[in-house]
C-alpha cells in the first residue's frame, strides 16, 4: 500500500473535467431553488390557510426524506407512469441531468424557504410599525423594509445551505452523471486506489466550500455596510 502521487497527477485533470457539470447542477438548481423558496415563503406568510398548509406539507415532506430517495423517485420512479412519458416534460425527465436538477431544486427550495422565513420573522416589529406610521402599505412594507432586512439576516444560514447543495450535487453520480464524483468513482473502479483519488477530490470540494464561504462573506459585508456599530 502506497500513496501514488503520479496517479493523482494523472487523474486530477480527468476529475476536474466534471467541474462544469458540478457547477451547472449547483448554479441552476441553486437559482431555481431560490425562486421556489421565495414562492413557498410567500405562501407561508400569506396568512391564508389554503396557501400556508400545502407549503408546510411540502417543506415537511422534502425536509423529512433523504435527498437520495428524492433523486431516485424522480429518476427511476416517474417513468413508471405513462402520463409522464407522454408529457412535454419528458425530454427533461429522460435525462439524468434534468432529474438531478429537478430533485436538487425541490430539495433546496424546502430548506431555503425555512431559512428565509427565519429572516422574515427576525425583522423587528418597530421597523414595520415605523413603516406603517409613514403611511406605507403592507406591500410597500414588505418590499422596502422586510425583504432587505430579512435578506441580510438570512444570509449566513443561506451560505451554509449553498454549501450543502454543493455537497448534494455529488449524489448526482448515483444516477450515472459524470460530475467530479462520478468520474472519481469510475477511476477508482479502474485503478482501485481510493485513497489517492477520493482524498484529492475531497480537497477540491473543500476549496470550493472555502470559496463559497469567502464569497458570501463579501456579500454579507456589502449588505451590512450600513450596519457598522459603534463600540
Amino acid at each position: 500500500m502506497s500513496f501514488d502521487l503520479n496517479l493523482i497527477a494523472e487523474s486530477l485533470p480527468l476529475m476536474l473535467m466534471g467541474i462544469g457539470i458540478t457547477f451547472k447542477l449547483l448554479i441552476v438548481s441553486g437559482f431555481l431553488g431560490l425562486i421556489l423558496a421565495i414562492c413557498l415563503l410567500l405562501m407561508r406568510i400569506s396568512g391564508r390557510w389554503f396557501l400556508n398548509f400545502p407549503a408546510q406539507v411540502y417543506i415537511y415532506v422534502f425536509r423529512g426524506t433523504p435527498i437520495l430517495v428524492q433523486i431516485f423517485i424522480i429518476y427511476y420512479g416517474l417513468p413508471q407512469f405513462e402520463a409522464v412519458r407522454d408529457s412535454i416534460f419528458w425530454p427533461i425527465l429522460r435525462e439524468p441531468t434534468g432529474c438531478a436538477i429537478l430533485a436538487l431544486t425541490l430539495n433546496t427550495g424546502a430548506y431555503v424557504s425555512e431559512i428565509l422565513r427565519g429572516g422574515v420573522l427576525g425583522v423587528s416589529k418597530g421597523v414595520l410599525e415605523a413603516g406603517s406610521a409613514l403611511g406605507m402599505s403592507a406591500r410597500q412594507n414588505f418590499i422596502y423594509l422586510t425583504a432587505p432586512i430579512a435578506t441580510r439576516l438570512a444570509l449566513p444560514a443561506y451560505s451554509n445551505d449553498v454549501i450543502s447543495l454543493l455537497k448534494s450535487t455529488a449524489l448526482a453520480s448515483t444516477i450515472t452523471i459524470a460530475d467530479m464524483t462520478g468520474i472519481a468513482r469510475t477511476i477508482v473502479a479502474d485503478t482501485y486506489a481510493p485513497y489517492e483519488i477520493f482524498i484529492s477530490l475531497a480537497i477540491v470540494y473543500m476549496i470550493f466550500t472555502f470559496g463559497i464561504q469567502k464569497l458570501f462573506g463579501v456579500i454579507e459585508r456589502y449588505l451590512g455596510r450600513y450596519m457598522e456599530r459603534e463600540g
Partner: peptide
C-alpha cells in the same frame, strides 16, 4: 470540522469503505 463539513458525505463513505478494505487487507 473544516474537512468533514466541506466534503460530500458520499465521498467520505466511499473512502472509508474502500480505503479500510485496502488498509486492512495490507
Amino acid at each position: 470540522t473544516v474537512i468533514f463539513r466541506g466534503t460530500p458525505e458520499i465521498l467520505v463513505i466511499l473512502l472509508l469503505y474502500f480505503g479500510s478494505a485496502i488498509t486492512l487487507t495490507a
